[in-house]
Design a protein around this nucleic acid. Structure first.
Ligand SMILES: [Mn+2]
Ligand SMILES: [Mn+2]
Ligand SMILES: [Zn+2]
Ligand SMILES: [Zn+2]
Lengths: 137, 137
DNA sequence: GGTATATTTGCAAATGATTCGCAAATTGCC
DNA sequence: GGCAATTTGCGAATCATTTGCAAATATACC
């Protein structure tokens, strides 16, 4: 584990939600180059130390998000108002995937699931846009 | 429904599997411009006549795939050897999504799920690469 | 430790999918 | 048919991501 890779991994581990590559690049400004960040993310995913998924959101377009594999494999909800992620907890797709493998003779090695919509906070605020401004990402 | 939009929609309807924007552009060569194809795909998705998901595959990178909404909402398996899609049939996530909405107070308006791995055909052929050459996408 | 070899990094430029500006063409409506 | 509103084509611009290559660092071996 090189210095750069360790830095990228701790950036992921320090975050409560998945990070886009460009946000990792931002957090590691001055620590390592953006090409190195991208290469490190690929390395970490290959090494099963991180996981990624590609999300489309009308405000951010297509971006790939990365999360440390420290915790159990899980999925996320993306709020299309405040653009934060909500942790949905450990993956509940095991049964469904096993069914599909048996029914169709597939060998499933990876899966991607995410939900999107409006989070509880945003739903609670009539004026969601004002809230969105204050909020993170 | 303009001529260009209709052309894009029938390209999607004529396909047994989701198409990347660039493949739609290819099929409509001479019929309409690529910017028009992209705009039409956005329009169709907005109008709920088509659905899209963004998939990452090491060979094709990140691409957004589109399918007509003619049939019921469904999900796909992507074979990382032959790069074809396998139709997994109607969506089975209704219960899981309803649970999550209740548990976490979310309002889920869209969801993306896809599986990837090795399809039955590719698994059956010891020499998967020869098969992959003959196959589609 | 010291040296040779393999891997990783920084930098700057390239890539590739997607988007945009704007004038011309098409559409929906009276 | 005539007109305002919308859509299209074209080319250039964007943006995330990748790549080539020389310098720096890590690893293997003595
Ligand atoms: Mn977002
Ligand atoms: Mn593929
Ligand atoms: Zn929110
Ligand atoms: Zn296959």
């Amino acid at each position: 584990m090189t210095r750069a890779r360790a830095a990228v991994l701790s950036a992921l581990e320090a975050s409560a939600e998945p990070l886009s590559a460009s946000r990792v690049v931002g957090k590691l400004e001055g620590v390592c180059d953006q090409a190195t960040v991208y290469r490190a993310l690929h390395y970490l995913e290959e090494a099963r130390l991180a996981e990624s998924f590609v999300l489309y959101c009308s405000q951010h377009g297509v971006e790939r998000y990365y999360a440390s594999s420290k915790a159990a494999h899980r999925h996320w909800f993306h709020c299309e108002s405040c653009h934060r992620f909500v942790d949905l907890g450990a993956c509940r797709l095991g049964g469904l995937i096993a069914d599909v493998e048996k029914e169709m003779g597939l060998r499933v090695s990876r899966h991607t699931l995410y939900l999107s919509g409006i989070c509880a906070d945003c739903a609670a605020h009539a004026d969601c846009s004002a809230h969105a401004v204050k909020a993170a990402p």
